[in-house]
Amino acid sequence: MRTVKWNGVYPAVTTKFKENGDLDIPAFLKNIEHQIDAGVNGIIIGGSLGESSTLTHDDRLALLEATVAAFGDQTDVLLNVAEGATTAAIELVQRAEKAGAHGFMLLPPMMYKPTDQEVADYFKTVARSTKLPILLYNNPVDYKIEITLPIFEQLASEANIQAVKESTRDISNVTRMKNKFGDRFKILCGVDTLAMEELLMGADGWVAGLVCAFPKETVAIYELVKAGKIDEALEIYRWFLPILELDINPQLVQNIKLAEVMTGIGTEPVRAPRHILVGDERKRVIKILEDGIASRPILPDYKNL
């Protein structure tokens, strides 16, 4: 079985579409190539940023198979699983395992506010349907379900539940997890605007959004922090923050796709019901990106620290 290390930068990649809404696999793979060249440690397909709610199981598997075929020997390839029914989650997990997935990001049950016990049982049941490693997604801000410490206690015996994407927006939750569980669960920051702070508090990795448009800058921050070069990392991070704030916005997909276009490594079409940015909001985002690109920092040799 493939071992996922759960450290480094894991882009939650955008899904590329043609103007008619069909998948654009060549554009999708072009962006992933830039991620790998920058030194990321894994790819997460079909997450919130990947327009998960508009993707069918067949869409997800097509993206997965193309990524594994092109880059599976170079990086971890994870598929997001966000389902309303346990049976649907198991079906997708088992199909994806056969298609070559290296692991999964797993959300709590969607479209229903479950009890804590229902959340725990859902995760256990899905985990037991596969041998592949799992990253749980803890995002009570957007999904209204928190994976609490007592839930994690129940899940600690499930060997393939190995990590959590920490998106509670509470930096101290990193310390709570470390105090309670030590290194049992790897912790990956899931909020771009808190990434350096959580890395300094002991997070193992970063599930990133703006990495889709700025892969080298994102990986450089991670590598500099882990090498103890905090001042160098902070200089890049402070430059990056106005751009990173585009990730904590209801239109994060549109924002980041526009950023990908402006850095030359993506396309802008989205799948309905989304629309691309227009009007004053588009002008506002373009101004942020133009200012950032004009002052883009010169990066150190972050791959050889």
Rank of each mutant, 00 (worst) to 15 (best):
V4Q: 02
W6C: 01
Y10F: 15
Y10C: 01
P11L: 05
F17P: 01
F17G: 04
E19N: 10
G21T: 10
G21R: 08
D24Y: 09
I25C: 11
A27V: 01
L29C: 08
I36G: 10
D37P: 00
V40D: 07
I44T: 11
S48C: 05
A62M: 13
L63F: 12
E65K: 15
A69F: 04
G72M: 05
Q74S: 09
D76L: 01
L78S: 07
N80P: 00
A82T: 02
I90V: 14
I90Y: 08
I90P: 03
A99V: 04
G100H: 03
G103V: 06
L106F: 02
P108W: 03
P108S: 13
P108C: 05
P109V: 15
P114K: 07
D116Q: 14
D116I: 00
A120S: 15
D121V: 07
V126L: 06
P133D: 11
L135Y: 06
Y137D: 07
Y143G: 00
Y143M: 14
Y143R: 12
I147H: 03
I147Q: 04
T148L: 05
L149D: 12
P150A: 12
I151N: 11
A159R: 15
A163H: 06
K165M: 04
T168Y: 00
R169Q: 02
N173R: 15
R176D: 10
R176K: 15
K178C: 01
K180E: 15
L188G: 01
G190H: 10
V191T: 14
L194E: 09
E197A: 15
E198R: 14
G205M: 06
G205P: 05
L210C: 13
A213Y: 10
E217Y: 12
A227S: 15
K229A: 12
L234S: 09
E235Y: 01
P242N: 01
I243K: 04
L244Y: 08
L246Q: 08
L246M: 10
V253D: 05
N255W: 13
A259N: 06
M262R: 06
E268A: 11
I276V: 14
D280Q: 11
R282T: 01
R284H: 08
K287G: 00
E290D: 12
I293A: 06
S295A: 13
R296Q: 12
I298M: 02
P300L: 10
Y302L: 07
N304V: 00
